[in-house]
Structure formats: C-alpha cells, structure tokens
C-alpha cells in the first residue's frame, strides 16, 4: 500500500498525529485549568466544613461529600453522554475542543476535590491552631497556611489527576474532540492501521512519563519538610 514507511508508519499520517497530539494537549490543558478552579475550592470546603474544621458546617459537609461520591460513581462514558444537553447549554456546542473539555472538567472535579482534601488533611492541626492564635482569619488560614503548606501534596494530586485526564480525554475525543485517543480509534482500531496505534501509544507513554517526572520534581523542590 504505502511505498515508504517509518517502522511501518505511512509518513502521510504524521501531520494527523501531530495535530492529534496538539489537540490532546489543548483538551487536557484547558480541562486542568477548569478542574483546578473548581476542584481546589471543593477540596478546601470538604476540609474546613468537616467536624473540627475552621468553618465547621456538618450539613454542608455531608451534602458535599454525597455529591462528590455520586459524581465519582458515574462511569465517564455515561456521564459524557448524559451531559450532552448541559454541555450544549454551557459551551454552545457538544463537539470539538469546547464540547470535549466541559464533560472532562465536570467528571474530574469530584476526583480533584478528593485529591485536594487528602493533601490538606496532611497539614498538621498545630499549624492551623498557631495561625488562629495569632489572629488569622479563616481566609488567611486557608490561603497562607492550608494551601501553602499542602503545596507539595497538591502538586502530587494534580499530577495524578492530569494523568487520569489523558486517559479520559481519549474517550471525550471519540465523541468529537479529536486528540490522540480519537486518532487511535479511527485509524488504529477501525482501519487496522496498527502503526498509527503504536505511534499514538508511544506519544501517550512519553507524555505520561514527562508529566509524572515534572510533578515529582516540582513537589520535591517545594517540600521543605
């Protein structure tokens, strides 16, 4: 079929692969911003409203906990379809980058909330108490003590979240967002072009390794304990 190949890969597929890589990066990048914007406040709320927290509010804590667990129980593929009407209203479209980013954000917020929660719980209660004793407001405790002291843990949690997101983005891509997952399905699976499949896998492996390495490095750099 193809006259010249690179390890069996038709060179005419390379622009497609590059485009798909860029699409994945865009999808994941925008989703990460959205997830952090909502996931961090959610995690903070889960911690500070808990029993003994600085803004204890047990009813709110229970409701949040329930909603988070609910969100996490939905298989992503179901959520993706169920969210279609909401996606259309919020983003104006259900296809392309915009259509794919929205369900990714919604699906990962509860997960990120729990990651943030567990990072914040690692902060010694004594530090919060010391800050309160110095006259800090709850807002100052959250920003200057909880989030700041938990930064290495937050980075580790974010790393885990981004890597799961890359996996999810394959599914979101398949419903119209493009990206490497979409490419792998269309060429590799549907057309039996195994080399395209392998190329996308190699790119995904490199991406995941790089993100993990970068996350570990940054977390270690900021960990002063």
């Amino acid at each position: 079929m193809a006259e010249q190949t690179i390890l069996g890969l038709d060179p005419s597929r390379i622009p497609d692969i590059l485009t798909a890589t860029w699409e994945t990066l865009l999808m994941v990048g925008w989703a990460v911003l959205g997830i952090l914007a909502f996931g961090i406040p959610l995690g903070v709320l889960l911690v500070v409203t808990d029993t003994g927290g600085i803004l204890e509010n047990r009813p709110l804590n229970r409701v949040l906990g329930f909603v988070v667990n609910l969100g996490r129980s939905f298989p992503f593929i179901i959520l993706l379809v169920a969210l279609v009407p909401v996606t259309r209203r919020v983003m104006g479209t259900t296809i392309g980058l915009r259509g794919a980013v929205f369900p990714l954000i919604v699906a990962a917020i509860p997960f990120m909330g729990r990651q943030v929660e567990s990072a914040l719980r690692e902060v010694d209660r004594g530090l919060i108490e010391a800050a309160l004793a110095m006259g800090a407001t709850p807002g100052q405790v959250i920003v200057r003590v909880l989030l700041r002291e938990a930064l290495p843990g937050l980075i580790r949690g974010t790393t885990i979240m981004i890597i799961s997101l890359i996996g999810y983005s394959a599914m979101a891509g398949a419903v119209g967002g493009g990206g490497l997952g979409d490419l792998a399905i269309r060429y590799g699976y549907m057309r039996f072009e195994t080399p395209v499949m392998i190329a996308t896998l190699i790119i995904l492996v490199i991406m995941v390794q790089l993100i993990q390495w970068l996350g570990d490095w940054l977390a270690r750099l900021l960990d002063r304990r």
């Binding site: 004594g126 010391a130 004793a133 110095m134 006259g135 407001t137 200057r144 002291e149």
Partner: peptide, 30 residues
C-alpha cells in the same frame, strides 16, 4: 485581641514551607 497574646507550643508549630524570617513575619503579614 489574639494578636495581643503570643503563644508558643510544645511542638513549635512552625510553618514548614516558610523560612525562619517568613515564620516570624507571619503574624505581621496577617
């Protein structure tokens, strides 16, 4: 009132992510 009452602790409760100077600066910052 709490700003007028200093407190020290058995386990020090210093902020790990802050330098010595930044720890001492904390009550003044807030």
């Amino acid at each position: 009132e709490r700003r007028q009452i200093g407190m020290i602790f058995q386990h020090f409760n210093l902020f790990w992510s802050r330098t010595v100077a930044e720890n001492v600066a904390f009550p003044l910052e807030i």
